[in-house]
Design a protein around this nucleic acid. Sequence first.
DNA 1: GTGGTCTAGACCACC
DNA 2: GTGGTCTAGACCACG
Lengths: 132, 132, 132, 132
Amino acid sequence: MQDVNIPIQINENSAEPLYHQIENQLRSFIITGQLEEGTHLPSIREFAGSLNCSVITVRRVYQDLENEGLLRTKQGTGTFVAQVEAGDRENYRLKAAREAMQAAVQSGKAVGCSEKEMANLFQEALKDIYTK
Amino acid sequence: MQDVNIPIQINENSAEPLYHQIENQLRSFIITGQLEEGTHLPSIREFAGSLNCSVITVRRVYQDLENEGLLRTKQGTGTFVAQVEAGDRENYRLKAAREAMQAAVQSGKAVGCSEKEMANLFQEALKDIYTK
Amino acid sequence: MQDVNIPIQINENSAEPLYHQIENQLRSFIITGQLEEGTHLPSIREFAGSLNCSVITVRRVYQDLENEGLLRTKQGTGTFVAQVEAGDRENYRLKAAREAMQAAVQSGKAVGCSEKEMANLFQEALKDIYTK
Amino acid sequence: MQDVNIPIQINENSAEPLYHQIENQLRSFIITGQLEEGTHLPSIREFAGSLNCSVITVRRVYQDLENEGLLRTKQGTGTFVAQVEAGDRENYRLKAAREAMQAAVQSGKAVGCSEKEMANLFQEALKDIYTK
DNA sequence: GTGGTCTAGACCACC
DNA sequence: GTGGTCTAGACCACG
């Protein structure tokens, strides 16, 4: 149980809601194990200050993730990273990636890409992103 | 110049806005050539009726696609599929697919997927979607 | 799909949060079938007005129940009672009652009640409440 | 007058506030006679240490139970179990159980349980909890 | 018109 | 100090 600094990147120009951006990144940190079980997250007020947003926005993030079972909060004490079962963690980890990939292939098929073209796009994306 | 029936599929449960679903499918039909240049689209009212949605929604769709240069509206006559240059068509065709693929790979990396895992997800998606 | 009047009872003196009271009663109406699938709920503004509370409170209620899968909301259109599978409905229906009953018996055992005493308390409660 | 070890069980995951859990269990021990009149309770600090919680929490517990007349505090000496009249003891004993049972039956009725279903739930709870 | 997001600020309960 | 609830009010996206 220790307090930590959490490097959230906010994109103000994105159409994605603020609370969504924060949620997604925080979820990633938890399910990849970069934030360990029991870690004491910053208080909502503190986090709001460092993110330069409203406490309500942070509260919503914490609450949503608590509903997902990734956080545990105790009144008067703070908010902590919950215990995540190994199986659940693996499911969480692949769920977002799988959904995005299905969507990508779907939209490729919609505009008439062949399987070969899709494979090229995939290799291209892989190279672009994993060598950054 | 002929009037046509356009098979749009609406998913009521999707979080994707209605106008977006229609736009994307109509765009696909145009850039894949399933709707030929000069084709006379249904009137806003008629289309709204057959889609069982508001005329406002269809108006927005036509307007957005006109702004993209895919449609052309003639006062008092109707809305037609515009001329699409071969190069533009190819760009259009790959743009959406490429962006979705980049997003998918990005989100995979975010949750710590290895390149191999991504490749598996890709093959899985390919099989799921192209054999449907 | 029709608009309805929903008789929510607010107890201002209760320690139970306002949004909780509303949620619980609305959930009951849905899972008991008193609100049928597809029913168009009042808009958040309208409901807030008739409940004499903030729109935010109503929004939270709708959102929580949507997360539970009991409601479905479409931007610009409104909020509707979702399709509830028969099995799910039965589970929902008994879950709250079962939990309360377990808690009651637990607390009875904690203060040393015999099984016979508990049975008396149960019969007493049954008579008090079901003959009202 | 003797010092004792008091086996309080804390459930960290419960939504029930910490001070409530402790209060309820301590109250049970007193009214069931498991803690006899005159028993010298641990000091606030000592108890807080063994429960691994804040002294503030224990102070609140002692104070609440003193207000209920179940404890008696003597400056500089400590906190003791007060005299409980036989009638009061019986009232205390049944009060919590009766209230929980009424609440359970109420919530059962709210979701449309028949009296027979309630009886089944009661028997089920009785078996679950009294045979543990 | 509908819901969706974000804000500032108040007051309470808990530790 | 912590989180929990509720408020009023603004602005945007959707139909």
